[in-house]
Amino acid sequence: MEMKHEDYYILEDQVSIPYENAYGLTWTRFFEGLKSEKIFGSRCGKCNRVLVPMRSYCPRCFIEIDDTIEVSQEGAIVAWVLTEYEYFGMPTKPPFIGALIRLDGTDCEFVHLVGGIDLSNPDQVRKTVKNGMKVRAVWKEEKKGHILDIKYFEPVK
């Protein structure tokens, strides 16, 4: 008997694989810094750029960096996006705003969340959030040495 497409089997499965990723020295320092509400960056001795999060080497000059500096917790939004959809295993639950933020005195964008505003209406969000807008880090009570120890960046009033 001829089978129809709908009758063909589908095998449902989940692949689940455990990992233990090493931070290494530089990022251990960076994430330890978050525990004490400090955002650390690195200054390249050659191009003089301040990069955040910390780097062990400059991706343009290819020299090692060991000049660690605490950077500002305030900066300006360079680009942002409001996420409204959810997918399997999504690490951050929508709605949320992901943003590129240029922290004061640094030379690259820091990727994080913009929060502390009502996200229920996209049109309202668009009127509130602007590129160039000043934002400031808001910390969680409990720190784990995790990138989300910074709860989000909120608009500076």
């Binding site: 990723n21 942002w80 690490p91 951050t92 992901g98 590129l100 969340l113 590129n131 989300l148």
Partner: peptide, 26 residues
């Protein structure tokens, strides 16, 4: 999402639409 490393960027980039929309917005 697994294209992003697990320490930092993975929490803020909502799959392909998030990345490309942010780029276009800027």
């Amino acid at each position: 999402t697994t294209v992003l490393e697990p320490f930092y960027q993975r929490f803020f980039i909502s799959g392909a639409p998030g990345v490309f929309s942010m780029q276009s917005q800027g």
